[in-house]
């Protein structure tokens, strides 16, 4: 398996959230930055501001196509960053918004993107407090790229949500249908015929997460949004960071029938597909039912399901159990399952 230093240049696989993305950060970026970087690689950085903890995160978006059935790059850019803050347990407060726009980009399209940014920010109850616009020549960027940075605070000082807090026997909840965003985007891009049946799940999940944290914060040990690399990559990362194993039941994974059809047609595993409104939660067994019921009451959580649990078996791997007892080892994703989905 060729890693970053063997390849010697940046390739598309470096940007897809798999092993190669991780290798770029750990073997090149962090060492190069040295002492100016904290070296923490969580969804959000937890920072001390004169005794108060705040969360900061940043993300860039290059989705293709920029407009899709039920959203556009503006909505994804807000929701992606909001969700990164929310899964760290923070309450999102502020966003920055920066554009790199290709010359000749239609103003009407830009306005439509801004409208989506406004609507998503209103729903998430955040304010946009700073921004930047750069324009590059024709062919120097693909239409429009967006960067958002988010700042949030920790209600009641709750900063316990971390892979280090995951315990043996914790149950794993997935809050939404897996793979829909990826299949929707790919289907629109290539005209595969699934785009009207399988819609993107893109949504700001801070409201749903806040409701659950309100009553069950101590029982929620870790959360992670299932974006690039999907559930498979998140679970692999959890195993690496926690030193524990994970066992999931394949037929408990929430998936839409048509999404499965498309994934099977394309020969791709939905477990690695990117989502934009779907998270995993690692929760204590005693509170699992209450948490699950609460999530299901929220419109963005109605398909939530307990998909597995944490183990301390000798084999520290992600294991998928089929309903016929068959065992599958879910390996970390090396590079791209599909590029430019967010």
């Amino acid at each position: 398996m060729k890693m970053t230093k063997d390849i010697g240049r940046i390739v598309l696989d470096h940007g897809t959230g798999g092993l190669l993305s991780e290798d770029l950060i750990s073997s090149i970026i962090i060492p190069r930055l040295g002492s100016v970087s904290t070296g923490e690689l969580a969804d959000s950085a937890v920072l001390d501001m004169h005794g108060k903890k705040i969360a900061v995160t940043t993300d860039s978006f290059s989705i293709d196509p920029i407009f899709f059935g039920n959203g556009n790059i503006g909505k994804v850019s807000v929701c992606g960053t909001i969700n990164d803050l929310a899964v760290s347990g923070a309450t999102p407060l502020y966003l920055t918004l920066a554009f790199i726009i290709e010359e000749d980009f239609p103003l009407a399209d830009f306005e439509q993107i801004l409208d989506s940014v406004r609507e998503a920010a209103q729903e998430a109850q955040v304010h946009i407090v700073a921004g930047d616009t750069k324009v590059v020549g024709l062919g120097e960027a693909d239409k429009i790229f967006v960067n958002t940075t988010g700042i949030g605070y920790f209600k009641h000082g709750r900063t316990h949500i971390s892979p280090r807090n995951i315990r043996k026997n914790d149950n794993i909840i997935v809050t939404g249908l897996l793979g829909n965003h990826s299949i929707h985007i790919l289907s629109i891009r290539e005209g595969l015929g699934f785009e009207s049946r399988v819609l993107s799940d893109c949504a700001p999940l801070n409201g749903m997460i806040a409701q659950v944290l309100e009553d069950h914060a101590p029982d929620i040990h870790f959360m992670r949004d299932l974006t690039r690399g999907g559930l498979g990559s998140v679970l692999s990362e959890v195993v690496a960071l926690s030193g524990l194993g994970v066992e999931i039941t394949m037929d408990k994974l929430p998936m839409q029938y048509e999404m499965k059809m498309a994934a099977d047609m394309l020969g791709i595993n939905p477990i690695y597909l990117a989502n934009e409104g779907n998270i995993s939660m690692f929760v204590s067994p005693k509170a699992t039912n209450d948490i699950l019921n609460k999530i299901r009451q929220h419109p963005y959580g109605k398909h939530a399901s307990v998909v597995g649990h944490v183990t301390d078996d000798l084999i520290k791997r992600v294991i998928g159990l089929g309903d016929d007892g068959q065992i599958t080892i879910i390996e970390p994703l090396y590079g791209r399952e599909l590029p430019r989905l967010c």
Partner: peptide, 8 residues
């Protein structure tokens, strides 16, 4: 893909 779309 046309088969899928036709079914839908």
């Amino acid at each position: 893909t046309t088969a899928a779309d036709a079914t839908f």
